[in-house]
Protein backbone atom coordinates (compact mmCIF):
# COMPACT_ATOMS: atom_id res chain seq x y z
CA UNK A 1 0.00 0.00 0.00
CA UNK A 2 2.94 2.30 0.42
CA UNK A 3 4.57 1.91 -2.97
CA UNK A 4 2.21 4.05 -5.05
CA UNK A 5 1.88 7.05 -2.71
CA UNK A 6 5.63 7.23 -2.12
CA UNK A 7 6.15 7.10 -5.85
CA UNK A 8 3.95 10.12 -6.31
CA UNK A 9 6.13 12.03 -3.91
CA UNK A 10 9.42 11.22 -5.45
CA UNK A 11 8.11 13.13 -8.44
CA UNK A 12 8.42 16.33 -6.43
CA UNK A 13 11.65 17.69 -7.65
CA UNK A 14 14.08 15.46 -5.86
CA UNK A 15 13.34 17.13 -2.54
CA UNK A 16 13.14 13.75 -0.88
CA UNK A 17 10.25 11.43 -0.35
CA UNK A 18 7.32 11.97 1.93
CA UNK A 19 9.01 10.21 4.82
CA UNK A 20 11.39 13.10 5.35
CA UNK A 21 8.60 15.60 5.98
CA UNK A 22 7.99 14.25 9.45
CA UNK A 23 11.47 15.12 10.56
CA UNK A 24 11.33 18.56 8.93
CA UNK A 25 8.02 19.21 10.62
CA UNK A 26 9.36 18.08 13.97
CA UNK A 27 12.46 20.28 13.69
CA UNK A 28 10.32 23.32 12.88
CA UNK A 29 7.92 22.50 15.70
CA UNK A 30 10.74 22.09 18.22
CA UNK A 31 12.35 25.38 17.19
CA UNK A 32 9.01 27.01 17.90
CA UNK A 33 8.47 25.05 21.09
CA UNK A 34 11.87 26.14 22.38
CA UNK A 35 10.67 29.75 22.23
CA UNK A 36 7.81 29.08 24.67
CA UNK A 37 10.34 27.69 27.14
CA UNK A 38 12.55 30.68 26.42
CA UNK A 39 9.61 32.92 27.34
CA UNK A 40 9.09 31.05 30.61
CA UNK A 41 12.84 31.14 31.36
CA UNK A 42 12.90 34.89 30.69
CA UNK A 43 9.86 35.42 32.91
CA UNK A 44 11.47 33.35 35.64
CA UNK A 45 14.75 35.27 35.42
CA UNK A 46 13.03 38.67 35.45
CA UNK A 47 10.86 37.77 38.43
CA UNK A 48 13.74 36.17 40.34
CA UNK A 49 16.01 39.16 39.83
CA UNK A 50 13.47 41.93 40.37
CA UNK A 51 10.76 40.61 42.65
CA UNK A 52 10.72 42.25 46.08
CA UNK A 53 9.20 39.11 47.58
CA UNK A 54 10.84 36.02 46.07
CA UNK A 55 10.69 33.03 48.41
CA UNK A 56 7.71 32.60 50.71
CA UNK A 57 8.47 32.66 54.42
CA UNK A 58 9.90 29.46 55.80
CA UNK A 59 11.15 28.24 52.45
CA UNK A 60 14.91 28.11 52.30
CA UNK A 61 15.44 26.75 48.83
CA UNK A 62 15.20 23.52 46.94
CA UNK A 63 16.92 20.25 47.84
CA UNK A 64 19.30 19.32 45.04
CA UNK A 65 20.27 15.68 45.69
CA UNK A 66 17.16 13.82 44.48
CA UNK A 67 16.54 16.10 41.48
CA UNK A 68 20.20 15.65 40.50
CA UNK A 69 19.76 11.87 40.37
CA UNK A 70 16.59 12.34 38.30
CA UNK A 71 18.50 14.66 36.00
CA UNK A 72 21.26 12.13 35.45
CA UNK A 73 18.67 9.44 34.66
CA UNK A 74 16.82 11.68 32.22
CA UNK A 75 19.93 12.92 30.43
CA UNK A 76 21.35 9.39 30.14
CA UNK A 77 18.04 8.25 28.65
CA UNK A 78 18.83 10.46 25.66
CA UNK A 79 21.93 8.39 24.96
CA UNK A 80 19.92 5.21 25.44
CA UNK A 81 17.34 6.47 22.94
CA UNK A 82 20.12 7.20 20.47
CA UNK A 83 21.47 3.69 21.00
CA UNK A 84 18.00 2.27 20.32
CA UNK A 85 17.93 4.19 17.05
CA UNK A 86 21.25 2.69 15.97
CA UNK A 87 19.84 -0.80 16.69
CA UNK A 88 16.89 -0.01 14.45
CA UNK A 89 19.17 1.19 11.67
CA UNK A 90 21.05 -2.10 11.82
CA UNK A 91 17.73 -3.91 11.57
CA UNK A 92 17.96 -5.45 15.05
CA UNK A 93 14.27 -5.02 15.79
CA UNK A 94 14.14 -6.81 19.14
CA UNK A 95 17.21 -5.00 20.43
CA UNK A 96 15.58 -1.75 19.37
CA UNK A 97 12.39 -2.59 21.27
CA UNK A 98 14.29 -3.57 24.41
CA UNK A 99 16.48 -0.47 24.46
CA UNK A 100 13.54 1.74 23.53
CA UNK A 101 11.61 0.28 26.47
CA UNK A 102 14.58 1.07 28.70
CA UNK A 103 14.43 4.70 27.54
CA UNK A 104 10.76 4.77 28.44
CA UNK A 105 11.48 3.26 31.84
CA UNK A 106 14.05 5.96 32.54
CA UNK A 107 11.59 8.65 31.47
CA UNK A 108 8.95 7.15 33.73
CA UNK A 109 11.44 7.14 36.59
CA UNK A 110 11.91 10.87 36.05
CA UNK A 111 8.18 11.59 36.07
CA UNK A 112 7.65 9.57 39.25
CA UNK A 113 10.65 11.26 40.89
CA UNK A 114 9.18 14.62 39.95
CA UNK A 115 5.81 13.67 41.44
CA UNK A 116 7.46 12.58 44.70
CA UNK A 117 9.39 15.84 44.85
CA UNK A 118 6.21 17.87 44.27
CA UNK A 119 4.42 16.03 47.08
CA UNK A 120 7.17 16.69 49.59
CA UNK A 121 7.64 20.40 48.91
CA UNK A 122 6.68 22.89 51.62
CA UNK A 123 5.20 25.41 49.18
CA UNK A 124 2.37 25.35 46.65
CA UNK A 125 1.36 27.04 43.42
CA UNK A 126 -0.07 29.99 45.31
CA UNK A 127 3.07 30.60 47.40
CA UNK A 128 4.20 33.80 45.71
CA UNK A 129 6.03 34.02 42.41
CA UNK A 130 8.66 31.56 43.62
CA UNK A 131 6.17 28.74 43.97
CA UNK A 132 4.22 29.76 40.89
CA UNK A 133 7.25 29.83 38.57
CA UNK A 134 8.59 26.57 40.02
CA UNK A 135 5.39 24.63 39.42
CA UNK A 136 4.76 26.30 36.07
CA UNK A 137 8.22 25.46 34.72
CA UNK A 138 8.49 21.93 36.07
CA UNK A 139 4.85 21.19 35.29
CA UNK A 140 5.09 22.41 31.71
CA UNK A 141 8.28 20.43 31.23
CA UNK A 142 6.67 17.40 32.87
CA UNK A 143 3.83 17.58 30.35
CA UNK A 144 6.45 17.37 27.62
CA UNK A 145 8.07 14.34 29.26
CA UNK A 146 4.69 12.60 29.43
CA UNK A 147 4.00 13.53 25.80
CA UNK A 148 7.39 12.07 24.88
CA UNK A 149 6.57 8.85 26.74
CA UNK A 150 3.24 8.55 24.94
CA UNK A 151 4.92 9.13 21.58
CA UNK A 152 7.53 6.49 22.40
CA UNK A 153 4.79 4.05 23.38
CA UNK A 154 3.13 4.75 20.05
CA UNK A 155 6.41 4.05 18.24
CA UNK A 156 6.82 0.82 20.20
CA UNK A 157 3.32 -0.29 19.27
CA UNK A 158 3.90 0.59 15.63
CA UNK A 159 7.13 -1.43 15.59
CA UNK A 160 4.93 -4.53 15.78
CA UNK A 161 3.11 -3.59 12.59
CA UNK A 162 4.56 -5.58 9.71
CA UNK A 163 6.38 -3.53 7.14
CA UNK A 164 6.44 -0.41 9.32
CA UNK A 165 10.09 0.35 8.62
CA UNK A 166 10.13 -0.54 4.93
CA UNK A 167 10.31 3.06 3.78
CA UNK A 168 12.39 4.53 6.61
CA UNK A 169 12.27 4.85 10.37
CA UNK A 170 8.64 5.98 10.35
CA UNK A 171 8.75 8.57 13.09
CA UNK A 172 11.32 7.02 15.43
CA UNK A 173 13.90 9.66 14.54
CA UNK A 174 11.37 12.44 15.12
CA UNK A 175 10.30 11.07 18.49
CA UNK A 176 13.92 10.57 19.44
CA UNK A 177 14.60 14.19 18.53
CA UNK A 178 11.65 15.29 20.65
CA UNK A 179 13.11 13.33 23.55
CA UNK A 180 16.53 14.95 23.20
CA UNK A 181 14.78 18.32 23.14
CA UNK A 182 12.92 17.55 26.35
CA UNK A 183 16.21 16.57 27.98
CA UNK A 184 18.10 19.66 26.88
CA UNK A 185 15.27 21.84 28.18
CA UNK A 186 15.52 20.02 31.50
CA UNK A 187 19.23 20.73 31.77
CA UNK A 188 18.55 24.46 31.39
CA UNK A 189 15.68 24.20 33.85
CA UNK A 190 17.86 22.38 36.36
CA UNK A 191 20.50 25.09 36.10
CA UNK A 192 17.88 27.83 36.53
CA UNK A 193 15.86 26.27 39.34
CA UNK A 194 18.31 24.23 41.37
CA UNK A 195 21.80 25.55 40.64
CA UNK A 196 20.94 29.26 40.49
CA UNK A 197 19.48 29.46 43.99
CA UNK A 198 21.32 32.41 45.48
Amino acid sequence: MSATPRGSHDAHGGHGGHGGHNLTGMVIFLLSESVIFLAFFAGYAVLKVSSPIWRPEGVDGLAVREPLINTIVLVSSSFVAWFAETRLRRGQLWAFRAVWLLTMAMGTWFVIGQAIEWRELAFGLGSGVFGATFYLLTGFHGLHVITGLLLMALMLWRSFQPGNYDGGEAGVTSVSLFWHFVDVIWVVLFLLLYVWQR
Binding site: S32, E33, V35, I36, L38, A39, F40, G43, L47, L125, G126, G128, V129, A132, T133, L136, F140
Partner: peptide, 21 residues
Protein backbone atom coordinates in the same frame (compact mmCIF):
# COMPACT_ATOMS: atom_id res chain seq x y z
CA UNK B 1 3.32 33.00 19.07
CA UNK B 2 4.90 30.77 21.74
CA UNK B 3 5.79 33.88 23.71
CA UNK B 4 2.18 35.07 23.73
CA UNK B 5 1.05 31.56 24.63
CA UNK B 6 3.49 31.50 27.55
CA UNK B 7 2.29 34.90 28.69
CA UNK B 8 -1.35 33.89 28.29
CA UNK B 9 -0.84 30.71 30.33
CA UNK B 10 0.57 32.81 33.16
CA UNK B 11 -2.37 35.22 32.82
CA UNK B 12 -4.77 32.29 33.04
CA UNK B 13 -3.04 31.05 36.19
CA UNK B 14 -3.29 34.52 37.72
CA UNK B 15 -6.97 34.76 36.80
CA UNK B 16 -8.08 31.27 37.73
CA UNK B 17 -5.55 29.58 40.01
CA UNK B 18 -4.49 32.35 42.36
CA UNK B 19 -0.88 32.83 41.26
CA UNK B 20 0.68 36.29 41.14
CA UNK B 21 2.96 36.37 38.10
Amino acid sequence: LPVLTGGAVMLLFDLSFGTSF
